[in-house]
Amino acid sequence: MRIIADENIPLVEEFFAHLGEIIRLPGRGMRPEDLKGADALLVRSVTQVDESLLRDSQVKFVGTCTIGVDHLDQKYLDQAGIGWASAPGCNANSVVEYVYAALAHLDVDWSGRRVGIIGCGNVGGFLHRRLRAQGVECRCYDPFLTLEDNPDLTDLDAVLDCDIVCLHTPLTTDGPHPSRHLLSDAELARLRPGTVLLNAGRGPVIDNAALLRRLEAAVDLQVVLDVWEPEPDISRELLAKVSLGTPHIAGYSYDGKITGTAMIYNALCQQLGIEPERNLEQLLPPVAQNRLRVSAKDGWLAQRALIPQIYAIAEDDRRLRELAQRAEQGQEDFAKGFDRLRKQYPIRREFGNYQLEFESGAEASAERLAALGFKV
């Protein structure tokens, strides 16, 4: 068996080597000629998998190590008899921790705010459950769910009236509720001054040109963008206006990426009719120095102090802005640099890998920190 894999997928050799030969390639640059002789294709969201890529190949399985599937032509794959699988939920916790890290960096205590969530699938639904467990008031918009699925469902206008608005919807362009440009000029105008607007789903769900117009008219929003329209050659003018900008890495925790690899490995084994020989517990390395001390007695101060120790989101923002400066000076191609930042992304582990030790009097913050996933 010959397996073509995106070079950014971790532990491919460790999981798949016993199944056959593995060839790693840049995901965004995959071409039909790269797939000749291949039996399986492993990708991430940057690879468009459709008839133009696969028609001259013998690929019988496509696995995307991501939650989203808008880069897969599912209709073509089904018609061509090509098995395919995604990794729903694999990086949901990673994205939720990105949200917490962004809010902590902005000094926005979510416990005292009303949070709106657009899209309550794997990621948005997980964020909703986490926030509700912390006693946070939530309003949710997802036209594909019912009140039985989510008791906080409401309409889009009610969500846009919240203090914090988080987008976690996939990108769709047809059907009864297309998500492309769900937020454009009219919707962005409804956001009240001081609102935090965060998109960690798909870039085109927000009309980026309309968002730039909104921010040029008045810088009265705190905007956090991890996803852009288009990628990788994003609007540097918009980057200059947002409070935090990162290169599509919200779901890039090491734990989440390896979970995605494991899920696709299991799916391929199932298609081949064989028992998996590898598992996540065998291959996910422990964190060597995983004990952290908590001294702050106030729950919010404890979170603000602790989260950056695990995930310094400001560093992601800094690297992207420095890339923009180099591109402006003609020192680096921005689009290639955007992909380089993703390829060379440093290892980020999730909160649940860390054990907290509390100084005298700081135990009062334990409940809030446990709700974030820390071991207390």
Results as ranks from 00 to 15, higher is better:
residue 269 C to N: 10
residue 269 C to F: 04
residue 270 Q to E: 10
residue 270 Q to R: 14
residue 270 Q to Y: 00
residue 271 Q to T: 15
residue 272 L to W: 12
residue 272 L to C: 08
residue 272 L to E: 14
residue 274 I to L: 05
residue 274 I to A: 01
residue 274 I to G: 15
residue 275 E to K: 15
residue 275 E to I: 15
residue 277 E to K: 14
residue 277 E to I: 07
residue 279 N to T: 12
residue 279 N to P: 03
residue 280 L to D: 03
residue 280 L to G: 05
residue 281 E to D: 09
residue 281 E to F: 12
residue 283 L to T: 14
residue 284 L to R: 13
residue 284 L to T: 15
residue 285 P to Y: 13
residue 287 V to P: 12
residue 287 V to Y: 08
residue 287 V to A: 13
residue 287 V to K: 13
residue 288 A to Y: 12
residue 288 A to N: 03
residue 288 A to Q: 08
residue 288 A to F: 09
residue 288 A to T: 10
residue 289 Q to W: 09
residue 290 N to D: 14
residue 290 N to G: 06
residue 291 R to M: 06
residue 291 R to S: 06
residue 291 R to I: 08
residue 293 R to T: 06
residue 293 R to I: 13
residue 293 R to H: 14
residue 294 V to T: 02
residue 295 S to P: 00
residue 295 S to W: 10
residue 296 A to S: 11
residue 296 A to P: 05
residue 296 A to E: 15
residue 297 K to W: 11
residue 297 K to P: 00
residue 297 K to L: 10
residue 297 K to D: 06
residue 297 K to V: 04
residue 298 D to W: 07
residue 298 D to N: 15
residue 298 D to C: 13
residue 298 D to S: 11
residue 299 G to E: 13
residue 300 W to G: 00
residue 300 W to A: 01
residue 300 W to K: 04
residue 300 W to V: 02
residue 301 L to G: 09
residue 301 L to V: 11
residue 301 L to K: 15
residue 301 L to P: 01
residue 301 L to S: 06
residue 301 L to R: 12
residue 301 L to I: 07
residue 302 A to D: 15
residue 302 A to G: 12
residue 303 Q to H: 12
residue 303 Q to R: 11
residue 305 A to N: 07
residue 306 L to Y: 10
residue 306 L to R: 11
residue 307 I to G: 00
residue 307 I to K: 06
residue 307 I to F: 10
residue 309 Q to W: 02
residue 309 Q to C: 13
residue 311 Y to P: 10
residue 312 A to D: 08
residue 312 A to V: 02
residue 312 A to I: 02
residue 312 A to L: 04
residue 313 I to G: 01
residue 314 A to Y: 05
residue 314 A to H: 10
residue 314 A to N: 03
residue 315 E to R: 06
residue 315 E to W: 00
residue 315 E to P: 01
residue 316 D to F: 02
residue 316 D to N: 15
residue 316 D to V: 03
residue 316 D to C: 05
residue 317 D to G: 01
residue 317 D to Q: 02
residue 317 D to T: 03
residue 318 R to M: 03
residue 318 R to F: 08
residue 319 R to F: 06
residue 319 R to M: 05
residue 319 R to Q: 12
residue 319 R to A: 15
residue 319 R to H: 14
residue 320 L to N: 13
residue 320 L to Q: 07
residue 321 R to H: 01
residue 323 L to D: 03
residue 323 L to P: 09
residue 324 A to R: 02
residue 325 Q to E: 10
residue 325 Q to A: 11
residue 325 Q to V: 13
residue 326 R to K: 12
residue 327 A to Y: 07
residue 327 A to M: 07
residue 327 A to V: 01
residue 328 E to R: 09
residue 328 E to I: 01
residue 328 E to D: 14
residue 328 E to Y: 08
residue 329 Q to T: 03
residue 329 Q to R: 04
residue 329 Q to S: 04
residue 330 G to M: 04
residue 331 Q to C: 06
residue 331 Q to M: 09
residue 332 E to G: 02
residue 333 D to S: 06
residue 333 D to W: 03
residue 333 D to N: 07
residue 333 D to K: 03
residue 334 F to E: 10
residue 334 F to N: 10
residue 335 A to M: 07
residue 335 A to N: 09
residue 336 K to T: 11
residue 336 K to R: 13
residue 337 G to A: 08
residue 338 F to L: 04
residue 338 F to G: 10
residue 338 F to Q: 05
